[in-house]
Design a protein around this nucleic acid. Structure first.
Lengths: 353, 353
DNA sequence: CGTGCGGATTTACGCACGTAAAAAGATAGG
DNA sequence: CCTATCTTTTTACGTGCGTAAATCCGCACG
């Protein structure tokens, strides 16, 4: 098992910068400056260092470099739930934007548990991240956690926010616009829609309900919301959508109505329920069953029928959130006013409504 | 904006353990011992510390605590791609298992980019994580990266592995068994299946193909693989499955055959293609079109028709991977023999095949 | 009241690197 | 060749905490 003399890895390993400095004949402080900014040393010195680094294997110690420094170059991100492609897309765009901005992102998933969320933010504080980005749980109980974080470091909420925290930076979708948008569309092409709600896992659930009601009243229709009845909040959206509509359909209700689901995953369950009852939702005929969603979940286009929805601009949200956070980090503005950045949803008319 | 005198947060902030020790009248080394193991100090002292901590806000500095210590209590996890519920479920089970074992997990996503994967493992080394768990890319080019990691720290591969690295610990599914299992099922209930392959994003793609061929030959059938033709490898599985079968169906091919898709996401695309051509895959009739997948993707049960598949035991894989890693960490066994842990897939017969 | 003992404190050093200040050296311009 | 300027080196201290050794303290025992 002579692992040291494989052709691919003959480089001697160097553990500290001290050793490195003797190995390539450059002083340690110079090396330190080089690693923080290669252009801060003279070209000839830089070349000598680069040549030296080719011949040995050395990675600076992460902790030591971060210890005695004002900025750690890291931002913390908290996501409430991983098994949902909406959040993975959001996370992806955040990671990409952060990478471009030169930050290392530390991701923690709260797994819908306020205790884990609290632990994660403790971790961020103890790592002195430069800033934190959090997509909060719906729990009202931990709003003071966010307020504490917000007071201690550059902080931006993403995706959903409690109404109780109006003065924290926020980036998300304008649900008034997006939900209003698709509500209006449904009213235009068919009967005024019924709203199929979702478990109250976060604040968006309620916000969309409200947007639906507002638009309906604006258009002079009677709002009607189903699916709010006593289901414990979890992330099993598809079964929820299925269960609610399966029950209704089997009683012969709503089989020729427009149903606006609070999100696409609920809508997927709704489509399943329709299929089970031999119903064929679609926009083709006037007056029949229609099912629409919200979010533009990646699998929506592959449903049968393809799901009509309104898309959140996840890419833009992630990018803007990172942008705003970096801005706050650089400005170090404690008293500065907060910003709320909302993106419009865009209608994706496909086959189901 | 007097944020300091809110009722919820009157606690004075203490930055270092030194200050803490004077604030609550206990020596710093004692505090240090307490934080590493609260039971290592006398009860009366522990109580005094606990009371003190209630009155102030203090979190130990993450970097400083890890600096001069043999173990950092962290394990690094690399995932190739986030927008796939298979990986998020794997990650979730890994995080849970690690949390139970008392480790902090640092997750990095390689976003299908070998360069990012390399950067992530550099990060792990520089953070001196206690061990690393990686779900590799399919790229042959970075196998030496894994070998280097494996030589330098406790290391376990998950989910997929290059055939070129037979002596690295691995935890995953026994594709010979799982794919063989469903192949056999399909042969039993209908025509011998055609295999719809996927872009070669990792080694499992090839391994399942081989398992299919082996089982078919064992049963005396002629294997037939489609979908391998010159598509650049990416993670857009559903469009891939759709495109391949859409083309075949429109030429009238395979419309009454059994089609085994390399995974459920491809199968979802396949179902969509079938629907588009007015085909109705299902196990109900003998001799008709059947479509089956692999993995038990969370949305499979909600497809129309519900997708027949063979489930990977993601939970067990994640748990076993962490278990094995922790074992290696504790043993610090450099020369120890490697283990390959494979889990069986279990058949999920639903409606589509 | 002297002794022994477990736990706490004091003291001191180490970790790997950032960083500031002073001294030394190299480069370019004259 | 000499000086003004830039860069590097030397030296030294700081970061927050782990850790070991020595000392101290309080308590029970004889």
């Amino acid at each position: 098992m002579a692992k040291t003399d494989r052709p691919g890895d003959p480089k001697p390993r160097i553990a500290t910068m001290e050793e490195l400095s003797v190995a390539i004949g450059v002083s340690r402080p110079t090396l330190s400056r080089y690693f923080q900014d290669p252009t801060s040393v003279r070209d000839t010195t830089g070349d000598r260092i680069r040549q030296g680094l080719e011949r040995v294997e050395y990675v600076p110690n992460f902790f030591a470099t971060r210890m005695n420094r004002k900025s750690t170059g890291m931002i913390g991100v908290i996501i409430p739930y991983l098994n949902d492609l909406f959040f993975t897309r959001l996370l992806e765009s955040i990671e990409m934007a952060a990478m471009e901005a030169g930050y290392t992102v530390i991701t923690q998933c709260s797994h819908s548990d306020p205790a884990i969320e609290a632990r994660a933010s403790e971790t961020f504080l103890s790592m002195s991240v430069d800033g934190a980005l959090v997509a909060p749980l719906g729990n009202q109980s931990d709003f003071e956690l966010h307020e504490r974080l917000n007071a201690r470091l550059p902080f931006v909420l993403v995706d959903s926010r409690p109404a109780t925290l109006p003065n924290i930076d926020f980036v998300g979708t304008d649900h008034m616009q997006s939900t209003g948008n698709i509500t209006q569309y449904l009213c235009r092409v068919g009967d005024p829609p019924i709203f199929l709600a979702m478990p109250r896992v976060n604040f968006n659930a309620v916000e969309r309900e409200r947007a639906y009601v507002a638009k309906m009243e604006e258009l002079g229709h009677e709002p009607m919301i189903i699916g709010t009845e006593a289901i414990r909040p979890d992330w099993h959206f598809e079964p929820h959508g299925f269960a609610v509509l399966d029950e209704r359909f089997s009683r012969g209700h709503f089989t020729d109505r427009s149903i606006l689901c609070v999100n696409d995953r609920v809508a997927i369950g709704a489509l399943q329920a329709a299929a089970r009852h031999g119903l064929d939702p679609g926009r083709a005929r006037r007056g029949g069953l229609r099912i629409a969603g919200h979010d533009d979940y990646p699998l929506g286009p592959h449903m049968i029928p393809a799901l009509t929805t309104v898309a959140q601009d996840v890419e833009a949200i992630g990018r803007a959130a990172v942008g705003r956070l970096v801005e706050k980090i650089r400005a170090e503005n404690k008293s500065g006013d907060h910003l709320v950045t909302l993106f419009d949803g865009v209608l994706k008319v496909r086959d189901s409504a």
